[in-house]
């Protein structure tokens, strides 16, 4: 049998696990509202029925339409089949509260705002946090570290939304920054310069609350990893053989960044979940706010849809992080291929 490139084997295995996990998780999401005693999904659907209809004939046709769509009178396995087929087509169904608008439509309205806020904040905090962490590690015990360590710890320990609340208070008190919204109530989203400036003005505080608190976490973990690495034989030898401190620092980065890359990919995956509370505090129209409304409205289709997307993204992020790790650290490639 010809020897398959062990790296390909590794990727295929991971891909397989990912797809499997996704289906298991989605199945659970599907089952929950339908098999909990009291069938909450059916209850919601009937509530639409009640709301929409005034006369009996309307009720009949609306009921037929809803049944056709939600198939609540069909056996569970048929519903599940339907669900799977739709899933494979990328159809996440229709929202209950906003029926007949599709989940995809609604998500498309909110998700980009969330990503625009979270992705740059996370990446920026990762870069700055890692840098600060390495500096702290290399100066361990000295003045620089004595300042940085408690600072990082304080930042990491503060939840983003608590920090956010303080920023809101700051905004209200000083009126330098608006305290809520992604843009002024009167502005209309467009690519015009004035809108972008307005958006950025609103953007700064939520951005800072996420950027600063995440930075703490990255900094601390990077500092720990770097301290570990600094005690290794090869760092000692690099010094002995006379490699310049700058080159040593770059080695240190490369060695310490590897676990952090995995962390980054995972956190980015989680960013789709939105910093729900932060968004609520700043009344920022992202997917977090949308999910919150959906939960309050008990719109199970919307919730289901969000979570399917969320799970998919997290699994994908996990998968990509493993690939990245293997590409960057050749030791991992060989270890996994050998198993």
């Amino acid at each position: 049998m010809p020897k398959i490139n062990p790296f390909i084997v590794f990727i295929l295995k991971r891909l397989g696990i990912m797809v499997l996990s996704f289906f298991v998780a989605s199945t659970i999401m599907f089952l929950l509202p339908r098999i909990i005693p009291g069938n909450p999904l059916a209850v919601k659907v009937y509530q639409i029925l009640q709301q929409s209809a005034s006369n009996p004939e309307m009720i009949k046709s609306v009921e037929k339409m809803l049944m056709d769509y939600f198939k609540l009178d069909r056996p569970l396995y048929e519903q599940y089949f339907d669900f799977l087929i739709n899933l494979l087509h990328g159809d996440l169904g229709k929202s209950i509260t906003y029926f007949p608008r599709t989940v995809n439509e609604i998500v498309a309205m909110y998700l980009p705002w969330t990503l625009a806020l979270l992705v740059p904040a996370i990446i920026a905090s990762w870069i700055v946090g890692n840098y600060v962490g390495v500096i702290a590690a290399m100066n361990r015990g000295k003045a620089v570290d004595k300042v940085l360590l408690p600072l990082l710890a304080a930042l990491q320990g503060t939840p983003a939304y608590v920090f956010g609340m303080y920023l809101v208070l700051l905004a209200v008190a000083t009126k330098w920054f608006p305290a809520s919204g992604a843009y002024s109530p009167t502005a209309i989203p467009s690519l015009s310069w004035s809108f972008i400036v307005d958006y950025l003005h609103h953007y700064i505080l939520p951005f800072l609350s996420i950027f600063l608190t995440s930075l703490g976490g990255w900094g601390l973990s990077m500092r720990n990893i770097a301290i570990q690495e600094l005690s290794m034989d090869y760092m000692d030898y690099a010094r002995v053989i006379g490699i310049s401190p700058r080159k040593t620092q770059s080695y240190l980065f490369r060695l310490s960044a590897l676990p952090q890359i995995v962390g980054l990919a995972i956190v980015l995956g989680w960013s789709v979940a939105g910093s729900i509370i932060t968004e609520i505090i700043f009344a920022y129209p992202g997917i977090g706010t949308a999910l919150w409304s959906a939960i309050q409205a008990q719109d199970y289709m919307l919730i289901q849809g969000y979570f399917v997307i969320l799970i998919g993204t997290i699994l994908l992020a996990n998968f990509i992080s493993e690939i990245i790790f293997a590409v960057v650290d050749p030791r991992v490639r060989y270890a996994y291929a050998g198993e």
């Binding site: 034989d233 090869y234 000692d236 030898y237 002995v240 060695l255 590897l258 650290d329 030791r331």
Partner: peptide, 13 residues
Amino acid sequence: LIPQSAMNAIIPV
């Protein structure tokens, strides 16, 4: 100088 425990002397990556 080639120090002791030179097994891990070279940067692994």
